[in-house]
Structure formats: structure tokens, C-alpha cells
Design a protein around this nucleic acid. Structure first.
Lengths: 161, 161
DNA sequence: CTAACTGCAAAGCGTTTGCGATGAG
DNA sequence: CTCATCGCAAACGCTTTGCAGTTAG
């Protein structure tokens, strides 16, 4: 999993956020006229409790621990639903399966994938965000989405799990 | 939430590159002790002639036109081979299938996907490349790969070339 | 009560692979 | 000749979906 980072630079770790997310998700479900089933509540719980970037299988396993009545089909359906409602973000790190994280518009970030351990680090960089927008603008586009992923090998001296 | 639908026909928008690519690919094949079969030659030809970012199906179709004896399994195998030999780059724009382009170390670039037409624009940005490296470095990593994709909607007044 | 939702199992889709046949070196 | 490579079709891994039963509102 993701532990505290050792480098004190501008490396915002993921906020150990409170259950506000769950109610946020529930609120949006209600707003969109969706039914708040036990399964959705559990999956929302799992997502907001996760500090990593779980794939479907992982969400399924974590949800099953809380409530064994959940099927993986429902996990797939629910994750897609939440993604479309912009409550969570679907990530793809190139290994074929999707990963998810709770959306957080207030602190947009990107990912660096540790090619040795598979760990995923998050980082923010305002300059990068600015350049992205400038480029899109210069090309005549309004930026509606983006994907910035860095893949790196830990430098020697970098203690890793 | 990045779901693109019609990325089907990306319009050519790549700098015209010389056929030197073919010999470059052949050279590398030989260097690595691989056999230069007719199939590989044809696929290399297709790739270096492509100015867009064809997916496997498209490479298969274009190759078939040049030589009908090619099977899609060979296209998959060859593309993977070329990718591993770093002759071509595998791209993923989020629609589930892989796309390919001939590598060009001399002018690293990124992609902006037109969400309206599916067209893929390429752009270079040294500052962006520098920031990427700085971030990886600061996090304790050596950058071994990256993926920067922008998704944009054409601004009004954008002359769709 | 009834439309939305779920579980299950089957299907879908892009990609990979086992195997016997083929051909490059 | 011999082994890398090929074509074919079956298998694979992740994801979606049709259907009949369940449940939130």
C-alpha cells in the first residue's frame, strides 16, 4: 500500500479523507435519482476508505469483506456508474485493467508508477497544469481531460517496499 | 472519466517521414538476430508509411492490401516485437485498443486527442519534458517512460484542417 | 406496487498462444 | 537442414450484458 513518503518536497500524499466521501457519493446518487442500495453504499465505503488505486478485483474483495452478498458484476456496474457521475476517476496504468480513485477536484494530481514495485505515487504540479492548458489553447482546443503518467525506476538509495 | 467513442479514424497529421524507417527497422531486426520475413517487411512498410496512429486492425488491413498472406496473429506478434525493440511506440487512448507509431527519439512528442473528431494531434514541448524529469527526479525516480495525453474540444472558430 | 437493481452465467472484445506447417539463413 | 516464424483457431483476461429474481422508494 501507500505509506508516508520520505521526501518532504511538494509531494502531496493522498488526503486521509473522512467519510464525507460516502455521503458525497450518496448525495450524488440521490440527486441523479439513483437508488442507494446496500451494495452501492458498501462500494462507496470501500472507495473512500482506499488510499491506493484499487482495481476492480480489489474493490470486489474489499467490498465482499464488508458484505458477502456483492457480486463482481455489481462492482463493475457500480464503478462505471460512479465514474460517469464523476464521483470517482478511472485510471489505466497500462496493465490492462482499470483502477479507481475518488475524484477530488480541489487538488488535481497526476501519477508516477514505480516500475519496480508497482506502487503509485501522486504528485501535484501547477506549472504542469498550466502548460497543459496553454498547449491545448494554442492548438485551438479547450482542455476537457488529460492523462499524465510517469513511469520510473527507483534510483539507487531509494528505499522501497 | 475519459471515454472516447469515435477515435476510429484519426486523420493523418504527422510530419512526412522518410522511408529510412523501413531500413531502420530491418537493421534492428538483423541486429537482434531476428529473421526478416516478408510479413515483417510489409508491416514495417505499413508503419513507416502511416502518418496517423493506426490500431492493430488498421495495420492488418493496410498490410493485407500489400500482401494478403498476412494473418492478424502475425500482426499482433510483429507489433509487439517492434515495440519491444523500441522501433515503434504503443499508444493507448483509452478506447481499449492499442495504437502504434514509429518511434522518433529525435523529436519526442505528446498527443492531443480531439474529442469531437477523434483526430490525434501531436505536439512537442521542451518545458513539459523538463518538468516531467524534474518531478520524477524529485520523487527519487529515474524516468523510464511517460504518457501525456490531452483530450480537448475544438474551440469555436477552430478551422478543422 | 413497480421500476431500478442484483446475481449469475454467458457473451464480447482485444489480445495471446499451442500446434503443426512453412521458410529464412 | 533447422529453428525461427507463420496461419489457424482455441484460449485468455477484463469487462459487459440478458434474464429472472429482488428490493428501494
Amino acid at each position: 500500500m501507500l505509506h508516508k513518503e520520505h521526501l518532504g518536497m511538494a509531494i502531496p500524499r493522498r488526503r486521509p479523507q473522512a467519510k464525507t466521501d460516502i455521503s458525497a457519493i450518496e448525495r450524488i446518487c440521490v440527486e441523479k435519482g439513483m437508488r442507494m442500495t446496500e451494495q452501492r453504499r458498501v462500494i462507496a465505503q470501500v472507495l473512500s476508505d482506499s488510499t491506493d488505486h484499487p482495481d476492480v478485483e480489489q474493490v470486489y474483495r474489499r467490498a465482499s469483506e464488508l458484505d458477502s452478498r456483492i457480486s463482481i458484476a455489481t462492482v463493475y456496474r457500480t464503478l462505471r456508474l460512479f465514474d460517469e457521475a464523476n464521483v470517482i476517476d478511472r485510471l489505466e496504468f497500462g496493465d490492462g485493467r482499470a483502477r479507481y480513485e475518488v475524484s477530488d477536484d480541489s487538488s488535481p494530481h497526476h501519477h508516477l508508477i514505480d516500475m519496480k514495485t508497482g506502487r503509485v505515487l501522486e504528485f501535484e504540479n501547477d506549472e504542469l497544469d498550466k502548460i497543459k492548458n496553454d498547449i491545448a489553447d494554442k492548438l485551438g482546443y479547450e482542455l476537457v481531460g488529460h492523462r499524465v503518467e510517469l513511469y520510473g525506476m527507483p534510483k539507487t538509495g531509494n528505499d522501497d517496499t
